[in-house]
Amino acid sequence: MRKEVIKRVKAFRILGRSIRDSFKSVFRNFSLSIASILCTTITLILVAIAIVISANVNHITKDMEEELTIVVYANADTSDEQLKQIENEIKEISEVASVVAKSKEEWRLEMKSYSETLNTTLEYLEENPLLDSFIVTVNDAEDLRPVALEIREMNNIESANYGEGMVEDIISVFDIIQTVTLVMVIALIVVTAFLISNTIKLTIFSRRSEIEIMRLVGSSNTSIKLPFVFEGFLLGILGSIIPIIIMIYGYLIMYEQISNSSSFSIIELISPMPFILITSITLLLIGSLVGMFGSARAVRKYLKI
């Protein structure tokens, strides 16, 4: 029991020593560390930009998709039973999320509220000239077109329309933006991991004699390797500080600007909290993991024990 405790205390002391050594090493090889930290910083800034862009594009697309509906008008002389039948038929299409019936009477009331002129006109007409309709939403923006086409084929349908053309273009552009940013981010992360790996490699070489002596006096392999892994971890963490600050302030400023400006009123960004918090944590995680993987690679490759 006592032996176990002593063993654990020793392990903690070795852990503490590893952390201390990794700090020392970062400052001892300052120019090299700075190079790695800067590279991580640049990468993470780009990663942050990519995250902000793609999250917001996603957000805007979702917003748009939610607003996207197919407006179906039935023929003027459709009976109530036939209307019911149309509604059921539309509901049976698997891509359809919801169908809301909107009778011509409802339309009339709504349109009357639009303007005085319309009100008077509609009052004047004895018969309601409007058509019974259905507001159909779909699960995915890409389903709009096929669903609209399918509805047009049904009986007693006057028309089934959605924002043809424009909507599809915007969505495909957004898709491309997302793919490009994702590929860029992955490439940058790989490059950074290699750079950190290189820094650790040089640290290993510069501390060769120390490592040799550690081996000869009986340090366990783990306690020799640990400081290097910590060092990579540390480089990653240090590299993620500036990107996080830039991201937080940048996003707050951008959010402020866009929500106050009239020309961007159609764009609504994700609200800063908790978005910036989650993004900060993500950046910190990416930085530290990339650092650790980079150094683990160097340790595996260059630290022969």
Binding site: R13, S209, L216, V217, G218
Partner: peptide, 27 residues
Amino acid sequence: IVFQDFKLLPKLTVYENVAFALECLGM
């Protein structure tokens, strides 16, 4: 183990060099 080329760490003092062996063991 004692070597012909000493294998001392130049940036550590005599005391630290000797203590290094024990520090590595977590003492």
